[in-house]
Write a protein that binds this DNA or RNA. Structure first.
Length: 269
DNA sequence: GCCATATGGAAAG
DNA sequence: TTTCCCTATGGCA
């Protein structure tokens, strides 16, 4: 479930569990064997998140740069690594007495230096989860003819927003994803930013994406709760054809830039 | 078993 | 705009 909130949450968990400790790093699958050897046995200083990029810091100014991509997973477990054969394709395993973490299916997992961390941070737009100034994002969107739905997913514009937060923030703002960025009034852009900050901070705390306002929650509407793969309750994401939680109109679906897009044609303009 | 699918992004055409 | 990569899972023979 890798949108920015997942990565920031992981950074916190990794820092808490492994920070200040000497960590054994391995690659049961083998594809990260060389990198693991570089950092294994050194002290893990802490982890940092920039958008969807995770940097795990080790003594000697070395970082393991991890990007989960579409289906990567990084499980941090408060118990010793199990004995015996490793289940599945574990690219990287972190291990200390009493805890371990397994990384599977990442798009990227490599040892880098400070320069690479800085380069990644520099090419990303402001991150709602880092307390960044939204100015550059607002300006870029305000000048662009590209659809607001595309701009919000562009990591160079806003870092950390993925397909779920994109769809949900636009629904909550009542904005049609196809609208050109420049056509969205600046105050609306500001409120979308503030909304993303609140939603994503909540996501970091809960480890899931919940976007439905109290007045539209299942208990309030007399319908059964619904939990999707992302773990939470949402208005439109992956609800195509089902009635909009606010107006009952069937939720629309489309594909833009090879990604699924969902919106309510009645509530969003 | 096979196929489709997924919250991403980079490279190729 | 399409293709490719990385992995697990659920539906369907």
């Amino acid at each position: 479930m890798p949108e920015g909130h997942t990565i920031h949450r992981l950074a916190g968990e990794l820092s808490l569990v492994f920070g200040g400790r000497t960590v054994d790093v391995s690659s049961p699958q083998g594809r990260f064997a060389a990198g693991a050897a570089v950092v294994s046995g050194s002290v893990l200083s802490g982890a940092q998140a920039y958008g969807k990029h995770l940097f795990i810091g080790f003594a000697g100014r070395r970082w393991v740069h991890v990007h989960l991509g579409l289906y990567g997973k990084f499980d941090v477990l408060d118990r010793p690594a199990p004995e015996g054969p490793v289940r599945g394709e574990v690219r990287m395993r972190l291990r200390v007495p009493g805890a371990h973490a397994d990384l599977r299916g990442p798009t990227r997992c490599e040892v880098v230096g400070d320069a690479e961390v800085a380069a990644v941070a520099a090419r990303l737009g402001p991150d709602p989860l880092r307390g960044d100034d939204p100015g550059p994002a607002l300006q870029r969107i305000g000048r662009s003819r590209a659809p607001i739905g595309v701009l919000l997913m562009d990591q160079a514009v806003v870092a950390g927003v993925g397909n779920v937060y994109r769809a949900e923030a636009l629904f909550r703002a009542g904005i049609d994803p196809a609208r050109p960025g420049a056509s969205v009034p600046e105050p609306v852009l500001r409120s979308i930013w503030a909304d993303l900050v609140g939603l994503m901070e909540q996501g970091v705390r809960s480890g899931r994406i919940d976007t439905v306002r109290p007045e539209h929650e299942p208990e309030a509407m007399g319908r059964p709760p619904r939990v999707d793969d992302h773990g939470g309750e949402v208005y439109v994401y992956r609800r195509s054809g089902q009635p909009c939680l606010v107006c009952g109109t069937p939720v629309a679906a489309g594909r833009t830039a090879a990604r699924n897009l969902f919106w309510c044609p009645n509530c969003q303009h």
